[in-house]
Amino acid sequence: MFDILMYLFENLVHNESDMMVDQDELTDELIRAGFHHDEIYKALAWLEKLCELQSTDDNPYLQFTNSPSTIRVYTFEEQQRLDSQSQGFLLFLEQINVLETATREMVIDRVMELDTKEFCLVDLKWVVLMVLFNVPGKELAYEQMEELLFDTPDGLLH
């Protein structure tokens, strides 16, 4: 399922394709690309839920306010999916204002809905990018996240 999300994001979003794609056409394209029906439907449902989170009426996470004195405590299930490195990265993104409380919760929500056994930091970065892309008014945060994901430092690292 995550491979399909990555395929869609890289081929539709980064190529600036028309975002109004017929679901049947999209499904046919994904089948031609080698993906299975079940995984395609799961990925499309995942994306549909992500799009629903754009609306303030459907987004329970927008009730959260940013407060530097609060600490996010992860549930057992979240800890199973998000290791300490991933949790630290989410905290880092909050500290540099790429994520705020609501968008962090949206990221965690989408991570927990992924139908995958293995999940790593690179996968988390892509989920963050997908969430920020879909939240109106987060263009600067999206650009910052893109730089974190794609830019590699020049020269020697000490």
Rank of each mutant, 00 (worst) to 15 (best):
M1Y: 01
M1V: 04
M6A: 11
M6C: 12
Y7D: 08
F9Y: 14
F9T: 00
E10M: 01
E10T: 00
L12W: 04
H14W: 14
H14D: 11
N15Q: 15
S17N: 06
D18G: 10
M19K: 09
M19F: 06
M20W: 08
V21W: 08
V21E: 11
Q23E: 14
D24Y: 13
D24M: 10
D24V: 11
L26G: 03
T27N: 07
E29C: 07
L30I: 08
R32H: 10
R32E: 13
A33T: 09
G34F: 14
H37T: 12
D38I: 05
K42V: 13
L44A: 01
L47M: 11
E48M: 03
C51W: 06
E52G: 06
L53G: 07
Q54I: 00
T56G: 13
D58T: 13
D58M: 13
N59K: 13
P60Q: 02
Q63T: 14
Q63R: 14
F64G: 06
F64P: 02
N66F: 14
N66L: 09
N66D: 15
S67K: 09
S67D: 15
S67A: 08
P68I: 14
P68N: 02
T70I: 13
I71D: 03
R72Y: 14
V73C: 05
V73F: 09
Y74S: 00
T75N: 01
T75P: 10
F76D: 06
F76N: 04
E77M: 09
E78D: 01
Q80L: 07
Q80I: 01
L82Y: 07
L82Q: 04
D83W: 04
D83R: 02
D83S: 05
S84R: 02
Q85D: 11
Q87I: 14
F92T: 02
F92K: 15
E94R: 07
Q95V: 00
N97H: 09
E100W: 07
A102H: 13
T103V: 06
T103R: 04
M106K: 10
M106L: 11
V107M: 04
V107Q: 06
I108W: 14
I108S: 04
D109G: 09
R110C: 07
M112F: 02
E113T: 08
E113W: 12
E113I: 00
T116G: 01
T116S: 10
T116W: 00
K117G: 15
F119W: 12
D123M: 14
L124Q: 12
K125V: 07
W126F: 14
M130I: 06
V131T: 12
F133T: 00
N134A: 07
N134F: 02
V135I: 15
V135F: 08
L140M: 08
E143S: 12
E143P: 00
Q144P: 02
L148Y: 15
L148S: 07
L149T: 08
T152Q: 09
P153G: 07
L156A: 08
L157P: 11
